[in-house]
Design a protein around this nucleic acid. Structure first.
Lengths: 345, 345
DNA sequence: TTGTACGCGTTATCAT
DNA sequence: ATGATAACGCGTACAA
């Protein structure tokens, strides 16, 4: 019942283990031996063990990329960049979706048996996870942030600042009634983006009474659509000062959910309401209307994380690095009033 | 310069390798030993080797998921399903983007050093790849097709049939001037979908002279948009019989590129032109207007492929399985004339 | 508490 | 062409 080994194949074929190895992996061997060994291997259902083979032949390193849900386009962009960075001859990269925080902790604890290094992008970080990461026997690179001065390599982006650029952008276009459509606040993205929104309101000289945050249950299209539907109910009947005229969403998916709700409510985009997202996913570029979005440079962060990890493999002693990338506003039609319309107004 | 081993750490700390192992992985050891060993490990820049540790502790199997580009949402859906299927205790799944066919061949050849099994979804398959797969020393599951009776496990979906359901759908809605917007024909998806289109024209009793295939350079939004722009140039000025009134795209991305081109040309969707895609990616559901799409059940195919591989691990002797899933048409607004409009016409 | 010695499954070297 | 044997780096039973 146990998995057959080369030993057993050799025994069954009546040859030495060395001959068996050669016969199967294309070394020198007589046709007769090859036939016998192949027959025995087939008979026993033998497949070579990747781990043992790797150990013997000097395998490339293995790195694990741990995220909450690999279905998220943002993480896909990172994965793609990581994979490109390590290249084909280099380490293999395996993916694991952690789901809950607890699973992330378990993962980090036990990953050392399965990987030489970890790149993790946690959405919720608590003390247990922080400890698991700093105590990890193998190098960990965090994409995101881990709190102050944790002694690990970190790739960081100031998403609060990113929200700020979006707020400033719509404010410069004359919008005053801003709604920040956020997800759960007990997450890293949720809390930092909330901070960014309120800070931008203050520094931008906007009226805090006309700007507010509303929360969706999740960072998804459907949750955002539901929440935004309430927001737009009876929009036309309200006084101008009570009408949201710009929605800053915490990510692209939520922005799209909100735009769908706006369309359902008969609102024109961007004339009645402008929309911005975060992440600059591919969908933002192709959506109709195309979506202004704050790029958090997911691909670049993935690439940098991979570089950091590879460098740590080479120089284990190096002091932990904190590398930052700048958010970048990509302006598209969801915040662009066409010249004709501007002239007409 | 070489990577330090536990031996060297033990030597540097002046203890046995066993004590070093225990000191580092939390076994019983005196505080003094622990301190010495940790110091030595830090000094040397020691990290445990994942492969060796895995071999010793009885590692889970490793499977490689090989696709042309993991950025493709379709492959992401498969990956996600595979990862969910094998679960957390099970095999680890690593991802590799092959890009060209040649790289796919190399991958399959050398993957045996790095994995216990392969799930591959090739977009172009030639004889070399076919041979590499059938000769692989470790089990391979193909998502797609490999030609007749190749002795490997295959998860298949009849995409030609899928195109047929889309053609029948728009035909039933009265459309007669169909355009099939396809990608390169020297690919598996390209050739099989072309077949499906022409077959559906024949069996559906449509006039072949009013239906045609146009080719984009690639299966992407931008390529499709460019090609479709030509298609719609001067649409309004043409005779009705010369106006395309339905575009069947080879995938969702291309459908969206084409819809963008249609919008640019001032056409109304679906009234002037209907659109259908293939793959039923998330973007189809949230696009504006939402996109009718032929689901090829990517997630289910991923899940089935993982099952097939796991089963082969357990029963190496089993005859190769060919499991098929049925395409499924998901109707959305891009092919739905609202009741009001129907009454008005 | 510490050290010795063996084995995980495979490939490579060296004789024969 | 084939077989015995030594590694690859690590964990652990056993003995001290």
């Amino acid at each position: 019942m146990a998995r057959p080994t080369l030993h057993q194949v050799a025994a069954a074929a009546g040859v030495s283990i060395a001959s068996a190895s050669r016969a199967l992996s294309g070394g020198v061997a007589s046709p007769r031996t090859i036939a016998k060994v192949r027959a025995a291997a087939r008979e026993l259902g033998y497949f070579p063990d990747a781990t043992a083979r790797a150990l013997r032949t000097g395998a490339p390193r293995r790195i694990t990329f741990a995220v909450d849900d690999i279905g998220n386009p943002n993480y896909v962009a990172m994965l793609r960049a990581i994979e490109a960075e390590v290249g084909h001859g280099g380490p293999s990269v395996s993916v694991t979706s952690t789901g809950s925080s607890d699973q992330a902790v378990e993962l980090v604890r036990h990953a050392a048996t399965a990987a030489d290094g970890i790149i993790i992008s946690p959405i919720r970080v608590n003390d247990r996870l922080r400890r698991a990461i700093t105590n990890s026997p193998i190098p960990v690179v965090v994409i995101g942030s881990l709190g102050e001065d944790a002694p690990v390599d970190v790739v960081h982006v100031d998403s609060a600042k990113g929200i700020g650029t979006a707020v400033a952008h719509v404010a410069a276009l004359g919008r005053r009634n801003l709604v920040f459509l956020n997800g759960p606040l007990d997450t890293n993205p949720g809390s930092s983006r909330e901070r960014g929104f309120y800070r931008a309101i203050r520094t931008g000289g906007l009226d805090p009474d006309r700007c507010r945050q509303v929360l969706a249950d999740d960072f998804t299209v459907s949750a955002a659509r539901k929440t935004a539907a309430h927001l737009f109910a009876g929009w036309q009947r309200r006084r101008a000062v009570d009408r949201p005229d710009a929605v800053i969403a915490a990510n692209d998916l939520m922005a799209i959910g909100a735009m769908n709700a706006a369309t359902d409510a008969g609102l024109r985009i961007p004339d009645d309401v402008m929309f911005t997202g975060v992440d600059d996913t591919e969908i933002a570029a192709v959506y109709n209307p195309s979506l202004t979005s704050v790029s958090l440079e997911a691909a670049q962060r993935g690439r940098l994380a991979a570089q950091l990890l590879l460098e740590r493999f080479e120089e284990p002693h190096r002091a932990p690095h904190l590398v930052s990338v700048e958010p970048r506003l990509v302006v598209r039609r969801s915040t662009t009033i066409s010249t004709a319309e501007v002239l007409a107004s």
